[in-house]
Each structure stands twice: as C-alpha cells, then as structure tokens.
C-alpha cells in the first residue's frame, strides 16, 4: 500500500458505516459467546488453569479496536480474550490455546493469560497486573523513532491503575509525546476488592491532569461512546499529539476468575446490569431503532458466531497436546 492508501484506510476505520457497525457487532457477539461458552466448559473441569472472562466489557475492546489496523499495537491484561478477539486473533487458535493444545495460538505454552499474536499487533494478555503500560511505551517509542503513524493501546483495570508501572508509563509517554492510549477498564473490582477500598474515589481519568494529558470518562457499556472517545484519542496520537487516558466505567458479568464464589457482590448486581446496560442489547436497540440494520441481519451474525464457537470448542477438545520435546523449545532464539 502507498502511504496515501494506508492513510485512507485509516480514515475509513473511524467511520461507522453499515459494514463497520456489523463488524463491531460481530466482534462483541464473538467475545460474548466465547466467554459464556468458556464459563460453561470451565464448570466441567476440562479447562486447565486460570480463566478470567471479559463478558460485559465487550464494547470497550470493540470500540477501540474499530479504529486500529493490524500494525497498531495492543497490550492486554489477565482478562485478555476480548482484546485478543477484537484485535483479530484467530478464535479457534485462542480456544486451542486455552485448552493447552499444540495447535494453540501460543502452541499451548501460554494459555488464557498469555494469548498473543505479534503479527496482529496483539502484544499479549498479561499475567502481571500493570504489565501492559510499559510495553506500549516501548512500541510507542519505536513507532515514533521509526516515524510511522502507528499507535499503541494498553488496557488496565481499576486495580491495575494503582500500580507504579502505570504511573511511570503515563509520565514517560507524556514526557516524550508517545503515540499511546492508556485505557482503564474500571469494573469496580480488583479481584474481591471494591475500588473504593483501594483508592480515594475520584475518577481515575483525573490522574491524566498530573501528566498533562487529556483524560476522559466514558460509559464502557456504550459502544458508541467508547468509539467516539477512542477515535479522538487515537487520531491525536497518530498526529503526534501524544498520549491520552480514557477511563471506561463498566461491569464484569462473571467472577474475577472462573471458580470465584463472588461473595463480595450484591445479590442482583449482575442481573440488573445485564437487564439495563448490556452492551449488545444497547447496540442492537440503537442500530435497529435508527433503521440502520435489520434485526434479522444481527440474528444471522448470532447464528454464525454460535457455529464458530461450537466448532472452536469441538476442535480444541479433540486436538493433541504438545509433544514432550516442546518443553525445551523456544526459550531462546539461539543458545
């Protein structure tokens, strides 16, 4: 592609035409089905390790990634399936990975918490809370030095927002005008700790002031609100205007990890959110009532996604585990 073509393609990313709306819906639906299916499969005991589900937060991943190209970067969290799907990671490869299979996106060596596809700009889910922001400073600096218009986005939770790494990264990104967006997914809890217990209660977005960067709060259930705020910050970053902080207020539908008894949550907490604020429901209402998309078109996507997830789970269950020799491979490039 010529530079003009790349720029043109990037322009179009911002636009919410019908195809883009359908894409966004498919992304959110895929994440939702992926996660809900993992929830039921995990209960059977067949899935190894820790699994943190993103259900309820889909509008954030979809809203940001709608603006990105394959060569833009994303650094995710332990709750990384949604970011990975939205950034274009192969859904079947992800499922195989979560089942610890050789054909997995990381050859079964990483699992749910380390899903990555560097060719897609997905720098990895992360087992270390606050691990992502320093990484996007790195790729952001690289983009700047190379003179590209790539951007890098890190996702961090409300708990992770209190890590020193996040503050240090915001400072550096601001000092060096890096093309970086710090997204805080504030779902109210860090494991079982309510946000009010671990910080003073002001919006996390306000911290941007201290680093002389724009900081905004958006409703993380509302794809359109996220999409708009994301577009502005990403455009600014691409044009050399430096970093931004965007706090998305949202809720997670399941426990911190699968198996979490969630004794710290109110009785109908999740049920009420699902009824009033579900991102897929809101999106559907908005696009159909505006006459942009027919219900039947969305139903068709639902059906296709359901089939994809069915196939992914079936293939993941049947796939072979890595052979013993793989234990010793890929520690180094050469040794």
């Amino acid at each position: 592609m010529t530079e003009a073509e790349v720029a043109g393609a990037r322009e179009r990313h911002g636009e919410l035409d019908k195809a883009a709306l359908l894409d966004a819906y498919r992304t959110m639906r895929t994440i939702r089905d992926f996660e809900e299916r993992l929830h039921t499969e995990f209960a059977t005991g067949e899935i190894p390790g820790f699994v943190h589900l993103y259900a309820g937060e889909e509008a954030i991943a979809a809203g940001f990634m709608a603006h990105l190209d394959g060569d833009d970067y994303v650094a995710s969290t332990h709750r990384g399936h949604g970011h990975s799907i939205a950034k274009g990671c192969d859904v079947k490869g992800m499922m195989l990975e979560i089942y610890g299979k050789d054909g997995g996106i990381c050859r079964g060596k990483g699992g749910s918490m380390h899903i990555a596809d560097l060719d897609k700009g997905m720098l990895g889910a992360n087992g270390i809370v606050g691990g992502g922001p320093p990484l996007v400073c790195g790729v952001g600096l690289s983009a700047k030095v190379r003179g590209t218009d790539q951007v890098a986005i890190s996702f961090t939770g409300d708990g992770g927002a209190n890590q020193g790494t996040v503050f240090e990264s915001m400072n550096l990104a601001s000092a060096w005008d890096l093309p970086v967006i710090f997204v805080i997914e504030n779902n109210g809890y860090a494991e079982a700790t309510a946000q009010a217990f671990s910080s003073k209660g002001i919006d996390i977005a306000k911290r941007a002031d201290g680093f002389s960067m724009p900081g905004v709060v958006v409703d993380g259930h509302d794809f359109f609100a996220v999409h708009e705020a994301a577009g502005e910050a990403i455009r600014r970053a691409r044009e050399g205007g430096g970093p931004s902080l965007i706090e998305c207020k949202v809720n997670r539908y399941y426990g911190h990890f699968e198996g979490d008894a969630q004794t710290y949550r109110a009785d109908n907490e999740v049920e009420n959110i699902r009824k009033e604020k579900d991102c897929l429901m809101l999106f559907r209402q908005r696009v159909t009532s505006a006459g942009l998309i027919e219900e039947s078109e969305l139903d068709k996507i639902d059906e296709e996604v359901k089939n994809l997830i069915d196939e992914a789970v079936k293939e993941a269950k049947e796939a072979p585990e890595p052979t013993p020799d793989k234990l010793l491979t890929d520690v180094y490039v050469s040794y």
């Binding site: 190894p48 390790g49 610890g100 299979k101 050789d102 990381c106 079964g108 060596k109 990483g110 699992g111 380390h114 585990e321 890595p322 052979t323 013993p324 793989k326 234990l327 010793l328 520690v331």
Partner: peptide, 16 residues
C-alpha cells in the same frame, strides 16, 4: 526443573 519457564499445557507441565 529444566532451564525453561514453566509451560502452560498439562502434558508439558507434568514433565517440568
């Protein structure tokens, strides 16, 4: 353990 990070997949972790 071998000179590797701990692997995820059960078949490898059991060897680790």
């Amino acid at each position: 353990a071998p000179h590797t990070p701990p692997p995820f997949s059960g078949s490898l972790e059991d060897l680790y």
